[in-house]
């Protein structure tokens, strides 16, 4: 009995020590390298602009899906997320209507391809971007969310909601330089592009997930 109690007394601090070591490992800070910038389009996605935000599964069993009627085991279990948001377009090259708006549908999934041990929490996504009067394209992105885990899990694990301002560049692929822009049509037709995603979180909790955040998808042509 003493052996079992001793093992448990050692196991818990050992596991905690390993988690702290991973979260504070300076080799994996969670910031993706910035890609080359160029003429293009900047899509700033603000929470308050959302026409409708839908999470078929938040990725955490204790966070409810929105709306509840969407819940299905194969979506819930695989932790997918769908968002339909409005975005403002700004700056960029000749192809973008400056300071206009765009329709974006984004579907994404946390995958098992990332290794948290090496600072990887990989989310794969496809963006469907429609710029009225301009054209449309798809963006395939691969983002590393380790930065979120590293800087926000500890405060939230202590029972406190995260409140602050943390910014991350998250895109790491699938191609060198960022996300792949494909299926371009309208005024974007015939161009080649890449993308990178920056995200800023202001408020999050373990119960509700990220509740106040802003994302910027920069698409360079």
């Amino acid at each position: 009995m003493r052996i079992i109690i001793g093992f448990i007394l050692g196991f818990i601090p050992g596991a905690l020590a390993a988690v702290l070591l991973m979260l504070h490992n300076p080799m994996f800070d969670g910031d993706a390298p910035r890609g080359a910038s160029g003429d293009g389009l900047e899509l700033a996605v603000h929470g308050q602009d959302a026409v409708n935000v839908v999470r078929t599964s938040s990725g955490y069993p204790w966070v409810p899906s929105e709306p509840a009627s969407v819940v299905s085991p194969n979506i819930e279990g695989t932790r997918s997320a769908v968002r339909v948001v409005l975005a403002s377009t700004a700056g960029g090259g000749d192809n973008a209507p400056a300071n206009g708006v765009a329709y974006i549908a984004r579907v994404s999934t946390l995958t098992r391809e990332g290794r948290p041990l090496f600072g990887e929490v990989i989310e794969q996504s496809m963006w469907h971007v429609v710029v009225p009067g301009g054209g449309s394209f798809f963006v395939v992105g691969e983002d590393d969310l380790w930065g979120f885990v590293r800087r926000m899990v500890l405060p939230m694990a202590r029972g406190n909601d995260f409140r602050g301002k943390v910014a991350f560049d998250t895109t790491i692929g699938p191609v060198r330089g960022g996300g792949r822009v494909i299926g371009l049509s309208g005024e974007f037709a015939g161009q080649k592009g890449s993308s990178e995603l920056s995200q800023m979180v202001r408020r999050a909790s373990l119960v509700e997930g990220v509740t106040d955040a802003e994302s910027t998808l920069r698409v360079s042509f």
Binding site: I5, F7, G10, F11, P13, G14, A17, M22
Partner: peptide, 14 residues
Amino acid sequence: SIIIGFLAGIAGAL
């Protein structure tokens, strides 16, 4: 047993 548990905890978490 505490030391073994500690090492097992590290190994399990990793």
